[in-house]
Structures are given as structure tokens and as C-alpha cells.
């Protein structure tokens, strides 16, 4: 059973996303809304990861060998300026998408395992992850015309 592997993957990716939000927020601190919202969302990701930890343990005993190439590197550096903000937010969008689809898959597994507690965690967290994606999309849409047409 690979559920523990995937729980571990999502847990790590939520931590990576939290780290990514903070880095992007710091790099674009002059955009006050980006600064504060990324910091709020970083905390949200960490609380998702914390909630997953006990399930990693619950299913950990049956965990097979770590499969190859499960983890990937995200967001090692940030950019500056208005175009940099768009690209940085697009990177965050990719990581948040990885979390979003992972929640979907783990939700399916939780139903299969009749694990009501895990399902409850999935239900509350996946809404927040989907709102994170919605925010990234909203904010990028808002900035795109000015950045792509006017800024030099």
C-alpha cells in the first residue's frame, strides 16, 4: 500500500509551499497584499502538513520502500519586479496544484479505507488549497495586463 508514501509526499509539499509563499512574500514585500496574504497562506499550509503527520504514522507501518522520484524540488529562488512577481506566483501555482490533486487522490484513498478522520482532514484542507489556487489566479489576472503591456 502506497498511501503512506503519498501522505508523506503531500505533507512535504505543503511544507515546501509554505516556504515558497514566505520567500515570494519577502521578495515582493512592496506589494502589501501579496506580502500579508502569502504569510497567512504559509501558516495555512503548515497547519495542513501538521494535520497530515499523524496519518503518515498511522499508515507508516505498511509503508513499502520509498519509490524513486517521488519528491521534487520547488522554488529555490525568487525574482524581482512586476514580471518577476507574475513568474513567482506562477511557480506557486504549480506547487499549489500539486497539493490540490494530491488532496483529491488521498481523499479517494481515505474513502476506500473507510477512514472518516482522514476524510475530515481532506475535506477541510482541500477547500483551502483550492482557494489558494483561486487567489493566485485572481491576483495574476489582475496584474497581467499592466505587467505584460505597460511595464518595461
Amino acid at each position: 500500500m502506497h498511501l503512506a508514501n503519498y501522505l508523506g509526499y503531500l505533507c512535504q509539499t505543503e511544507f515546501d509551499l509554505a516556504d515558497g509563499y514566505r520567500k515570494v512574500g519577502e521578495a515582493h514585500a512592496q506589494e502589501a497584499d501579496v506580502y500579508y496574504i502569502t504569510h497567512t497562506l504559509a501558516k495555512q499550509c503548515e497547519s495542513h502538513a501538521e494535520k497530515l503527520k499523524s496519518f503518515v504514522d498511522r499508515y507508516g507501518e505498511e509503508k513499502p520502500e520509498e519509490p524513486e522520484l517521488l519528491y521534487h524540488e520547488f522554488l529555490d529562488q525568487t525574482r524581482s519586479g512586476s514580471l518577476g512577481l507574475l513568474r513567482d506566483m506562477q511557480d506557486l501555482y504549480l506547487v499549489a496544484s500539486a497539493c490540490d490533486i494530491s488532496w483529491t487522490m488521498i481523499g479517494q484513498a481515505a474513502q476506500g479505507m473507510r477512514d472518516g478522520e482522514l476524510l475530515e482532514v481532506v475535506d477541510s484542507c482541500e477547500v483551502e488549497t483550492s482557494n489558494q489556487l483561486k487567489w493566485l489566479r485572481t491576483r495574476m489576472k489582475e496584474a497581467a495586463p499592466q505587467t505584460l503591456i505597460v511595464a518595461s
Partner: peptide
């Protein structure tokens, strides 16, 4: 909108 982020539906 989402009240935490302002993300629009």
C-alpha cells in the same frame, strides 16, 4: 470572493 484572500469566484 473568498474572505481570506479576496480570490474571486
Amino acid at each position: 470572493s473568498d474572505l481570506i484572500t479576496g480570490a474571486t469566484n
